[in-house]
Write a protein that binds this DNA or RNA. Structure first.
Length: 290
DNA sequence: AAATCGGGGGG
DNA sequence: CCCCCAGATTT
């Protein structure tokens, strides 16, 4: 494994970074936190418009904390995984009440907040506050797997290995490490993509261990195939949530039956949503939680 | 370690 | 059609 000159990534990023809201000068730490919640498993292009509406409406944690969950879930719209919206709301409440309405800077303090894990905590510490930490998302894991380890795909996510691997590459300089973190992510997002990497446009092409080895195929057992979405409980949950978001009054069991005809499946889905705090029984039917 | 959790983009 | 996506949490 060669060292991999961080300047290759930093210089490429300076020239090719996409113009995204969270890269605007003066973008708030709160805005960065909100963007990171929305970006957990949802693509950039879908996040941007919702994020801008969201920050206009709730410019600080206390503003969001004061809103009812029903409105938070409506504003979340179709971003997916609506439990993230509830976690973000809870996160805002904790920041408003326990951190003086200021987004914490320490990774440990961030990790203690709901909905924030290894990636998000470090992303906020680095991008919102300029601290030095390895930021490892799926893009970074893929770039390291290829450029450094010489394999087509990273192994399963494991912070015990992934964080030190990125830390070993991270420049000491505070400005450079931030650009290296962001640049490595960006490289994985738009050049070193999972499906069809654009090695011809890659600043690491000449030093990439995977390319130099002749792009060997993935080894080991193939990953378990993702379950079908069509006909899944996830699709059913999504349909119920869409109905609840669209109605100002409780949605009757009969109305829900038009979306989920099977009584047994309907009961299972509603019980799950209720347990997750995403739906509430009310007089005459089901509603978003107030 | 594996399952669960939405919904859509793009090869 | 199928894989992938700026992951976190629970089992």
């Amino acid at each position: 494994m060669t060292a991999l000159d961080p300047a290759l990534v930093v210089d490429w990023f300076a020239a090719h970074a996409r113009d995204l809201p969270w890269r605007r000068p003066g973008f708030s730490a709160w805005g960065t936190l909100v963007s990171e919640f929305m970006l957990q498993q949802t693509q950039v292009a879908r996040v941007v418009p919702i994020l801008e509406d969201w920050l206009r409406r709730w410019p600080t944690p206390a503003d969001l904390a004061a809103a009812p969950p029903s409105e938070v879930l409506r504003a979340w719209g179709r971003l997916g995984y609506p439990r993230r919206a509830l976690a973000l709301h809870a996160c805002a409440t904790t920041i408003a009440e326990q951190h003086g309405n200021v987004v914490p800077e320490d990774v440990d303090a961030l990790l203690a907040l709901p909905g924030i894990g290894d990636y998000t905590a470090r992303a906020i510490a680095v991008f919102a506050h300029g601290h030095r930490h390895p930021v490892v998302d799926t893009n970074v894991r893929r770039v390291i797997a290829r450029a450094v380890q010489g394999v087509a795909q990273p192994g399963p996510p494991n912070a015990r290995r992934d964080l030190p691997a990125m830390a070993a590459l991270l420049p000491e300089d505070l400005v450079a490490q931030r650009a290296f973190n962001a640049g490595t992510m960006e490289l994985g997002a738009i050049v070193c993509t999972a499906r069809a990497p654009r090695c011809g446009e890659c600043p690491l092409a000449d030093v990439c261990a995977w390319r130099l080895a002749g792009h060997p195929e993935p080894d080991g057992p193939p990953p378990r195939r993702q379950a079908r979405f069509e006909g899944s409980d996830r699709q059913r949950r999504g349909r119920v949530m869409a109905e609840l978001r669209a109605s100002d009054v409780p949605v009757s069991e009969a109305e829900l039956a038009q979306v989920l005809p099977d009584p047994e499946g309907r009961a299972r889905i509603l019980a799950g949503l209720e347990r997750d705090g995403l739906a509430a029984r009310s007089e005459g039917g089901w509603s978003l939680p107030l």
